[in-house]
């Protein structure tokens, strides 16, 4: 199996760098994008094994829009998405019942910012193994 490819989409360059640094310790192949359009372009270039996505609240919650776009596309809908959230930052979003809801938060996992390197790596590994099954 080739080196897993991971796509990071975040408008904050610091977090992109932090996430990238953490992931590269495990020899993942990391590509980055700073907004939704770039992210879609990267997905079109090469379908990643996992997408790490920020909500990008500052840009009108582009993260949500991106997640839904991917889920609607039959070619990409099976790519696992790990969302980096700081949900409490915004009181406007509240998900009924389960935290991860197919309509409201169409992602596979989420990790709260600030990132705990260990947790991030464990989560990515879990998503990768799920995808392989």
């Amino acid at each position: 199996m080739s080196t897993p490819s991971i796509l990071i989409i975040d408008d904050d360059p610091d977090f992109v760098e932090i996430t990238q640094t953490i992931l590269e310790t495990k020899q993942y192949r990391v590509r980055v994008a700073y907004n939704q359009a770039e992210g879609l372009a990267r997905v079109e270039e090469e379908s990643p094994d996992v997408i790490i996505l920020d909500v990008m609240m500052g840009r009108g919650a582009e993260g949500f829009v991106f997640a839904r776009t991917i889920r609607k596309d039959p070619r990409h809908k099976d790519i696992p998405i790990l969302m980096l959230t700081s949900m409490r930052e915004q009181t406007g979003f509240d998900f009924p019942g389960e935290r991860i809801h197919p309509d409201f938060l169409p992602v596979d996992e989420y990790v709260e910012k600030p990132i705990e390197p260990q947790v991030l790596l464990e989560t990515v590994e879990r998503l990768l193994s799920q995808k392989d099954r």
């Binding site: 610091d14 977090f15 932090i18 640094t21 700081s86 930052e89 390197p117 260990q118």
Partner: peptide
């Protein structure tokens, strides 16, 4: 939030001796 969150993430990067 955003800067503190960033600061803490960097700090964890360093304390985890990743860099």
């Amino acid at each position: 939030r955003a800067p503190v969150s960033g600061m803490q993430s960097f700090v964890r990067l360093i304390t985890n001796q990743i860099v």
